[in-house]
Design a protein around this nucleic acid. Sequence first.
DNA 1: TTGTGTTTTACGACCTCC
DNA 2: GGAGGTCGTAAAACACAA
Length: 225
Amino acid sequence: MDQMVLGSQVYPYTTQTHSQCIIVNQIDGAPSGDGSKPVKRRRKRRSKGSSATNEDDVASIGALLRKRKVTDEQMNMLEYSFENEHKLESGRKEKIARELGLDPRQVAVWFQNRRARWKNKKLEEEYAKLKSQHDTVLLGQSHLESQVLILTEQLTEAQNEIQKLSERLVQETSTNSSSSSLSVEANYAPIEFEFAPVDTNYNIPFYMMDNNYLQNMEYWDGLYV
DNA sequence: TTGTGTTTTACGACCTCC
DNA sequence: GGAGGTCGTAAAACACAA
């Protein structure tokens, strides 16, 4: 519990008001300007160790600068209210402030900060979700790449096998023609096979889409629905 | 006890909406 | 123009390791 000692009494939290905050700012030398377009200017604050002109100033400024931390009960009520509605219209702000014994400005600031925390949390959650999806996609990519390697090897083996068969056929044909008086070349012309080039960009031809491949595609497609 | 990192409170500057 | 929003940040309060 945040406590503050004033005289002989101990207060659970200070009773600094918004107007008192403004007084502190004026003491700190932050005039509100001449009415022209406001110039972006960082508000100067009094640091813990800064000097003052007299002891009374030190005591009063110290008291005013003390933060008013909300109690657990006030926090619960504010959280409950925030759950219902993140925005805070004027009437509601006054009502909450009255019920909790807080300054309306304090309630407004609390909601502003609460919204900021909520937004940060949402961003973190969204980031975690996207990262998880990204990791899943990388895993899938790796899996597909290994599939391509395997299939490429199989294709090469098949091409070699066909090539051997083709050469054997040509050989047998020429042997038959030399031992026979009849020419059969026209009937046994060498077969020319034309293979599509292996595409490493995953443009897998339809005839290579086996059940496993199709199941994988369904799985990956499902991720993007 | 003290140094340091994190959370909370508060505010200035600026923007949007009515 | 005023009210209320976001954004960035200062400073107090708090937590905790060394």
